[in-house]
Amino acid sequence: MSAHESEWTLRRLSAGELAAAEAARARAHAANCAACGATLRGLEQDQARFEAAVPFEHFEAGVERAVQRQRRSESFRTPPRRWVATTVAMAASVLVVVLARPLLSNGRGLNGLKGGAVAELRIGGGSGPQREARTDAPEALDYGERVRLGYQAHEHRYVAAVSVDAIGEVTPLHPESGESLPVEPGADMHWLPDSWELTGSGAERVVLVLTDAPVSVDALVDAARRAFLAADGNVERMALLDVPGEQTHWVLIKP
């Protein structure tokens, strides 16, 4: 065990967050330890420098402007469930697609698309700019961000999407029941009509499947559950689902 307090503990002490007993112990230690005392004084000096550089009135006005921006974005929200789907009109207003890029099997992630088929998961709706999720590494989401799925079907005729959360709960995203739906005609990138906000925390895997024949949503959900169990309940280690067609996976880390 270290003889010093962690810097994080001292930072929490400086912010007045520690419980009385822990605060007293940490403060007593810092008073008698040159290294921890210096760290604590450094943190206090950082705050003093901040206050000198950014007057409170300036801070308050800047935060208020940011609140207004975020509230305009919030006004698009619907009541939370694990996945929150929203309407086409709302999604279009939140997510303006500016780029579509083929996702070929060139990474460590799961991307079963070959030939001309393309899939993309786009993240937006938060306070930052939109971005495309990678398939070869988990993608961290910020609060308020939502996702939208797109595809170029090439020669495939049906599309469906599901998600699996960290405890193995599978949610059909598109469609929510029945069978996978016909793809939109044309070679352009087509976006599924809903965008989704993930609630809860931990990892969530999103899978988009393109097939030549309809696949029942129940079969997709079962395949996702089997893959989750085969990965010993680790949603980040799941393999491709045992279903026909081609599929792309993304792992998202909820805030």
């Binding site: 943190l43 950082d46 705050q47 901040f50 206050e51 950014v54 409170f56 801070f59 308050e60």
Partner: peptide
């Protein structure tokens, strides 16, 4: 708001 500013602004 002032509490946020004085406790956490620097960090």
């Amino acid at each position: 708001m002032r509490e946020l500013y004085t406790k956490y602004g620097g960090s």
